[in-house]
Nucleic acid binder design. Sequence first.
DNA 1: TTGTAGGCGTTATCAA
DNA 2: TTGATAACGCCTACAA
Lengths: 361, 361
Amino acid sequence: MVTMSDVAKAAGVSRATVSYALRGDPRIAAATAEKIRQAAQKLHYNANISARSLRSGRSGIIGVAIYELDRPYPSEMSAAVSREIARRGYQPIVQQTSGSKDDEIMILQKVTSQLCDGMIFSPGQVSDEELRALSHGKPMVLLDDISPDPVFDSVNTACEDGSAAAVHHLIDIGCKHIVVVGPSYDMLLDDKMASSVVGRRMTGCLRAFEEAGVDVSSRNFLPLRHWDPIPSREAAYRLLDSDDYRDADGVFCLTDTIAISFMRGLADRGVRVPDDIALVGFDGVTESEYAVPSLTTIRTDLDDLARKAIDLLLDRVNANVGGTGSDPSADTASDGDLAFPDSPQRLTAAWELVERESTRR
Amino acid sequence: MVTMSDVAKAAGVSRATVSYALRGDPRIAAATAEKIRQAAQKLHYNANISARSLRSGRSGIIGVAIYELDRPYPSEMSAAVSREIARRGYQPIVQQTSGSKDDEIMILQKVTSQLCDGMIFSPGQVSDEELRALSHGKPMVLLDDISPDPVFDSVNTACEDGSAAAVHHLIDIGCKHIVVVGPSYDMLLDDKMASSVVGRRMTGCLRAFEEAGVDVSSRNFLPLRHWDPIPSREAAYRLLDSDDYRDADGVFCLTDTIAISFMRGLADRGVRVPDDIALVGFDGVTESEYAVPSLTTIRTDLDDLARKAIDLLLDRVNANVGGTGSDPSADTASDGDLAFPDSPQRLTAAWELVERESTRR
DNA sequence: TTGTAGGCGTTATCAA
DNA sequence: TTGATAACGCCTACAA
């Protein structure tokens, strides 16, 4: 391994000078800096991240922790975030939380909070408060945070507006009995559920129904215990077999993966989409465009989401340069300074309704 | 941050004793070790990875570098590998190489080769020789390595056998004019292409054609410059519009993503699958099961692939414990010892032909 | 069985 | 403008 000492020797300067020069410190004379850069290049020198991180607490790495890397939406999202991180000159590393709380904690303790200058986290089981403890004061941006009073910055998908648009679209094309696949009717009674992704999406649906003057009952909701392909496919059978849903002519599935599996279930029974039942999904994964029939969906602009998330994160990361990072007692009083407000920001990713064959009548 | 000194103080022992105790060194008395473990637990102590890595060269992290994290096959593969790594008690981190050579080099230089005890790499642009230099002596297992004379252990998909099975299946169900979508007819003339994934899959097709006594010409191959959804969809138009392929009644697409996009292209033109044209894919991604019609495919057993890859990798990682790691001059002479042969191993992942609607006649 | 001490490669504080 | 020097937190001979 070639270390900084080797470069220093080759360039005829001290290690300290090499360190300054390679990081662009203006105190080093241009000629010296150039000489050092050339020596480093020739020796294929690369700064040791462990040593740098140990000494300075900064690694240049941004972590992304996401649930289930083998599902279309999370994987497209982490890819987009990953690319945006690289674009800003940081090294992205992705980790899969796989749903278990222990897993999430392990990831945060073992690598993310230690190695990373900041992290993008899609919370599953861990609460905001627990996250605060696990973050060790490192900046973190949450994706679709469900906490009623947030601790961290977050970027959300347009759950309410998007879902409302989906339901409005079904109404617009003439659907009389619309069924929302995912939530149960009494879900909103639970405060914690109400602020979750499914709760917010359901709220959007209810708003749309109300705006259109549609009466709502439990017949408008088909609950799903797990948002997985198999139960989603079977949900189609349940819909077709139950008297409650027999005249359903429009379905809004809370994710594209649910929608595509549900559509497969309808195909199993020979039900035609959109002729017999029109269908709308949510997410806008690539798959939705290539399905037969292609799926109308609420597409989340993942590039926009990534940009907003990384903007928020890097603001905090760079603000941390001066402070200790672990002691947020900086200046709670100076609320006049708007640059980095202490209160967590909450942004929403851009989205659009993409009309495709599944609602073309 | 709570360090080893804090634990030592709390337990009333020295730092060294803490280090030994927490890593299960038998020299420490059971009672002492237990006391130390409890103190560590109470303080929420976590060993600093940077410090450990700097001092011992080991981090407990295994890296996975894969091309395009937002495609179904690579994402399912990295998820499977990631889970297997976690199962063995290591921390997996995933990075996306995004195809560019600079990107791959950057990833290897900046984080993988520095931070990781070993890595799983799906090579794109970088040659085996370059990899050797970039690996800094760290163990590495390649996935679908295309090098004719390999430098590293690798696990491959069953390109030849799988493709042969796909073509045989199409012949079995009665297809008379089979078209393979992906490669061009003259591809095998190029030595480098011949050992690539597409080359090996094509070789399998040719073998099947030969075994079945089918004459082969360029009319049996529909080349694809990029294996992306859009060109794949358009390839279907090309097939339908060209006199060369007009009577095609069976298609083998070299990946599921190609197959699903191609199928979508056929649907655009109102061609029925399997009635007019039967279709087989390769990979066995989740999506293939939920497509309408569901896709017959050569499914690679990703759990088996992950298990084999990590077995190979951890063998080398643990073998490195004694040696310097960067100096592989250990014992090239003792070829009698079969435990860790110096010559790279090449394994093949288990696979199966999954028959579904797209070939059901 | 446990403690002492030195160093991994870098950065930051001083002094020159 | 540059150089010496002391940490950062951990591991590991070696000494006790």
